[in-house]
Amino acid sequence: MAKTVLKMILNGKPVERLVSFDDTLLDALREDLGLTGTKKGCGKGECGACTIIMNGKAVNSCIVPALQAMDAAVETIEGIGTVEKLHPLQETFVDYGAIQCGFCTPGMIMSAKALLDKNVVPSREEIKEAIAGNVCRCTGYLKIEEAIMAAAEMMQSQQGK
């Protein structure tokens, strides 16, 4: 199997890993780098479970060729918050009961983070558009939207807006 070195900035740190030419970014993250927080649902770009942030944008890592991440800044759920200090989104997802089975959650959080990183005062419509590509079979979305709204407010007060 032909392989090559993928270099990227992963969760703020430079990494290098040998990947196959036909690896998806999801394969590289889960299999080669051992970061299994990013989930594989459909593998076809239809469910959003594999959502990560690449150069500031939410993308489905299951259909992005790994080598397209060359020199890119990639953020995964592992880079968001710490056990001691959760990211506002992680806090509000817990507080609002926006998690049930949890399979969609890493992708949801990444989609929501990509939105809030650019726009900390989103409208309900903007939140819906941001997570329209993330399927959740459990919660019915309402609590997720509320959690994102609440996280936005937390971030506003943190930023003094």
Binding site: G45, G48, T51, K57, A58, V59, N60, I63, V64, S111, E129, A130, A132, G133, N134
Partner: peptide, 9 residues
């Protein structure tokens, strides 16, 4: 088209 993730790529 698709979803935001798809439109972004």
């Amino acid at each position: 088209v698709g979803s935001l993730q798809i439109r972004n790529t």
